[in-house]
Design a protein around this nucleic acid. Structure first.
Length: 935
RNA sequence: GGGCGGUUAGCUCAGCGGUAGAGCGCUACCUUCACACGGUAGAUGUCGCAAGUUCGAUCCUUGCACCGCCCACCA
């Protein structure tokens, strides 16, 4: 083995081996355990969030597979309608053309081509993270089987009366030219204005003043509303106003929606371009007057002067014109929330359009779809981890709106609906099926609906569509192999746990619950683990324009400064931003990013994965875990070095010969028990910490050191037994660590396992270790604690008295009892080796006590004679300091024990514990006090 | 407006009713035959503020302050 751990050389070797040998496929007759990968965008690239989330899934999958569960990690990618279409549209634009020039069919062909080129980028990146996913079952949301599932679900919901088509006000993205759902709209605070405009009452000198942030929409006003009990205006209700600039006559209506205290208490009503106004309009039977085209220009319903103007140009002109006629009463700055499309940053324009909806709000929609989804979480059939997210989930479902599922795009699942020349709707899996299920025969030719479905519609079916539903056994991959069989694969439903981010609880999680319950009567998963969001070391969101993103692959492989700068600034078009980012990177990573390897990156993710909702990724922390990998590596080197060919190794089943072995096996069992708990609770941070501490602070710091005297001593039995225990604990802890750090554990295990006559192709094929496999020994544990205490005392004296670490010293023990004497005998070689002692003796009762530095273990004094080593004053000062500290502790104990209410009310064991503490401190204080007196 | 988090060592975070912890960083000493990606010893905290419950509160309750996120938004 090399002197230090070099991750690069082993990672691809083992990944290729595992994948090509089918190690990631479900196997065995154990309990089904399925994890669904949230399918990433097919043309995307891996970011830190993916890497973190996938590491968590991979740890679970590897753990359960080793536990013998029939484990399936279902992977795949999402066609990501808008995102993917946009990329290809940008490519076309760069080439000086556009999708309309190409035509729909050619455009879609072009997208498929792009998918073919870049679709495996992210899955190959996933492989670098080490993900043990069954790639032979990889799916794509637009593959044949999933498309069949989409059609079947759409048609079934339609026939069950749960999908409808309607002309509704929807969030319209005028740049992308499509409707988007409520969830795809962000409200962003922007500086704007509030304008007050005077509307004259027809045939009167009176007028009302309305306030608006969007004066251009006045072109579509059909009323002005006041509160029914607002006495300022009751006399005007029912009267008519003349809409300035337009001249149209509009009524004054009364509606409780109006807040009397806000503005003037008069609200202009534009039902076709505002969601609240739309509701008011419905209540009052008002006309919906659309005044914008689909690309947000003023249409022909407006006066000629404004037609064709963009909505913001129209706003300017209208304000000028209002000013000119004296109708503009006031202009003041106003902060407002602007609805912005997530995908294009365009300001959303509410538009009346024909769209398809899933009914989630009618009595039937609630009973059949949204209600059961709510109930599944309320009843505990689905459990959120951490639990508080179930509240978020429930509140959204309680206030849910119908789901607008149609998108005016080309890339996606085209809606299986046709229209005849009379406008009748025909829905079916194909044209013939649609006609066959219709009440009436079509009038003339059928035309297919041009729209596609929201990307999340197909994602919602992921839990069962990937298992082969509804084309049982008929879906084959390019190699002609069947990828999924619903009749046999449905054992993986419900899946065990969904690992995902809170940002898609509504987009995805809730919709999977709705669809899966409806079509399979099963919940899609039993648990939902909501992982944290990854931020930079300062807690800032990672963003390319800030220059604080990290590419997980750069952490794994390392990257020099110049390539890092080049890559981080490449896509940035604004020079100021580019300069800022470059400056930041040169400051943050003056030497580039060191290669830490996949294992260290994964360990870091595990160590950061507490229940908190954000994690701040700090490279220095990752470097620390790289050191851990190196530590493990070198521990293995030490072990292997000591079990070379002719070294005797005790036979399997031989009881451990030394207390040190019994102690480390005890600690191993305890650690494994903790690890099992932490896996069950998804506390990967505690899991990582428990294993880290065991390996470093116990196995390496103490056990390896304790084996040295045994390995080099005369007792052949002890040496042989020690070799077996060294190997056993190492082999076991490698398996325990494998789900977290798969590569290094496999690499080392290959060398270690054969020494124990364990033969398997891969560590993945071996069972996960269980606490019960190792017997515990409380006596041995206490013995080693004693040894550690004595050595700590000796080392502290050395350090504080400035005795060179390598200088041999004499040890004198005094006042101990029989058990101290026995332990001193047992551990004599260890004490000599670890304490660098030239001699160790018990102080004879009759002998004069030499001047010595002291520390106390229980009843026993640990003495280092001072002669020639140190001066008395230094030791006196040291003892005085120590006694003072102990007296502080005693004072605390006295305070408690002197309080009658504490003694009376606290549990007996707490009081007993406090008394014991008091005794221990007092013994120490007395012993050190005596020592000081002697000096 | 409704909801959910957070505030603990210089930094990043665990702990959550009974002696304040980890990693990184810091100080001193040590190239000892697994490892300097190392070893040994050490320093560092009125656990956001205030009141309450309790024998006892970093931990429970209430209020407050600051930071953050989600949802809904008065035109």
């Amino acid at each position: 083995m090399d002197k230090s751990f070099e991750p690069g050389t082993i990672e691809s070797k083992w990944y290729d081996y595992w994948e090509s040998h089918g190690c990631f496929k479900p196997a065995g007759n154990g309990e089904p355990y399925c994890v669904l990968l949230p399918p990433p965008n097919v043309t995307g690239t891996l970011h830190m969030g993916h890497a973190f989330q996938q590491t968590i899934m991979d740890m679970l999958v590897r753990y359960h597979r080793m536990r013998g569960d029939n484990t399936l990690w279902q992977v795949g990618t999402d066609h990501a309608g808008i995102a993917t279409q946009k990329i290809v549209e940008n490519q076309l634009a760069a080439a000086g053309t556009d999708k309309h020039a190409l035509g729909r069919e050619a455009f879609i062909e072009r997208v498929w081509q792009w998918k073919g080129e870049s679709g495996s980028t992210i899955t190959n990146q996933m492989r670098r993270i080490g993900t043990a996913a069954d790639w032979s079952r990889e799916r794509f949301t637009m593959d044949e089987g999933l498309s069949a599932a989409v059609r079947k679900v759409f048609v079934q919901w339609y026939r069950d009366g749960l999908i409808y088509r309607g002309n509704r006000l929807v969030n319209w993205d005028p740049v992308l030219g499509t409707a988007v759902s409520d969830l795809e709209v962000n409200n962003v605070e922007r500086d704007g204005h509030m304008w007050s405009i005077r509307y004259p009452v027809a045939g009167s000198d009176e007028s009302v003043v309305i306030a608006t942030t969007r004066p251009e929409t006045m072109l579509g006003d059909v009323a002005v509303a006041v509160h029914p009990e607002d006495e300022r205006y009751t006399h005007l209700v029912g009267k008519t106003l003349t809409l300035p600039l337009v001249g149209r006559q509009i009524p004054v209506i009364a509606d409780e929606y109006v807040e009397r205290d806000f503005g003037t208490g008069c609200v202009k009503i534009t039902p076709a371009h505002d969601f609240n106004d739309y509701e008011v309009g419905k209540r009052h039977g008002l006309e919906n007057l659309t005044i914008f085209t689909l690309d947000a220009k003023v249409n022909d319903n407006a006066p000629a002067a404004y037609r064709g103007l963009d909505r913001y140009e129209a706003r300017k002109k209208i304000l000028i014109d209002l000013e000119a006629i004296g109708a503009l009463v006031e202009t003041k700055p106003h902060k407002l929330q602007v609805p912005v499309s997530q995908r294009s940053d365009a300001v959303i324009e509410p538009m009346l359009t024909d769209q398809w909806f899933v009914d989630l709000t009618s009595a039937k929609g609630r009973e059949k779809i949204s209600g059961p989804a709510l109930e599944a979480v309320r009843s505990g059939q689905i459990r959120f981890v951490p639990d508080n997210w179930s509240k978020t989930y429930a509140q959204w479902l309680e206030n849910i709106q119908d789901w607008c599922i149609s998108r005016q795009l080309w890339w996606g699942h085209q809606i299986p609906a046709w229209y005849d020349e009379a406008g009748n709707i025909f829905v079916g899996e194909g044209e013939a099926d649609a006609i066959a299920h219709a009440m009436t025969a079509p009038v003339g030719a059928l035309t297919r609906d041009a729209d596609v479905l929201d990307t999340w519609f197909s994602s919602a079916l992921w839990p069962f569509s990937t298992l082969g539903w509804p084309l049982d056994g008929a879906v084959k991959n390019d190699a002609g192999q069947i990828v999924a069989n619903w009749s046999t694969d449905k054992i993986y439903l419900p899946s065990a746990v969904l690992v995902t981010g809170f940002d898609i609880i509504f987009f995805w999680v809730a919709r999977m619950v709705m669809a899966t319950l409806y079509f399979t009567d099963e919940v899609p998963f039993r648990e939902v683990y909501i992982n944290a969001i990854v931020r930079d070391a300062e807690g800032q969101k990672m963003s390319k324009s800030k220059g604080n993103t990290l590419d997980p692959l750069d952490l794994i492989d390392g990257i020099e400064l110049e390539p890092l700068v080049a890559k981080s600034t490449k896509a940035l078009l604004i020079p100021q931003v580019r300069d800022k980012v470059e400056k930041r990177i040169r400051k943050d990573y003056p030497d580039g990013i060191p290669a830490i390897g996949t294992d260290a990156l994964r360990f870091t993710f595990a160590a950061l994965a507490s229940y908190s909702r954000t994690i701040n990724f700090d490279i220095s922390r990752a470097e620390g875990y790289k050191a851990f990998c190196n530590k493990l590596w070198n521990a293995a080197r030490f072990v292997l070095m000591n079990v070379d060919d002719d070294a005797a190794i005790a036979a399997a089943g031989t009881p451990p010969a030394t207390a040190a072995e019994r102690w480390i096996l005890t600690r191993l069992a305890q650690t494994l028990a903790e690890v099992e708990q932490h896996f069950a609770n998804y506390r990967f941070d505690h899991l990582a910490q428990a294993l880290y501490e065991f390996v470093w602070n116990e196995y390496c710091d103490w056990f390896l050191e304790l084996t040295k005297p045994a390995l080099n001593g005369d007792d052949a039995t002890a040496a042989a037994s020690t070799r077996r225990t060294l190997l056993t604990v190492l082999e076991t802890v490698l398996r325990a660590l494998h789900p977290v750090i798969p590569f290094i554990t496999e690499e080392i295990w290959q060398d270690v396992a054969p020494r124990l006559d364990i033969h398997a192709d891969t560590i993945m094929a071996r069972p996960y270790p269980q606490a019960g496999e190792f017997s515990t020994d409380a006596t041995a544990a206490a013995d080693v604690e004693w040894l550690k205490a004595v050595l700590s005392g000796v080392r502290r004296i050395r350090a504080e008295m400035n005795i060179a670490p390598g200088k041999p010293i004499d040890l004198l023990l005094a006042d101990g009892d029989a058990s101290d004497r026995q332990r001193a005998d047992t551990f004599a070689p260890s004490l000599a080796f670890l304490g660098r002692l030239s001699s160790q003796n018990w102080l004879q009762a009759s002998a004069d006590e030499p001047a010595a530095a002291a520390s106390v273990v229980g009843q026993m004094r640990v003495l280092i004679p001072l002669a020639g080593l140190i001066d008395l004053d230094a030791e006196k000062a040291r003892l005085t300091r120590e006694i003072k500290r102990i007296e502080g502790e005693i004072k605390k104990c006295e305070g408690k024990l002197g309080n009658a209410r504490f003694v009376d009310n606290a549990p007996a064991e707490v009081v007993a514990q406090e008394r014991q503490r008091m005794t221990d401190w007092s013994t120490q204080r007395d012993a050190l006090g005596d020592q000081l007196a002697r000096l």
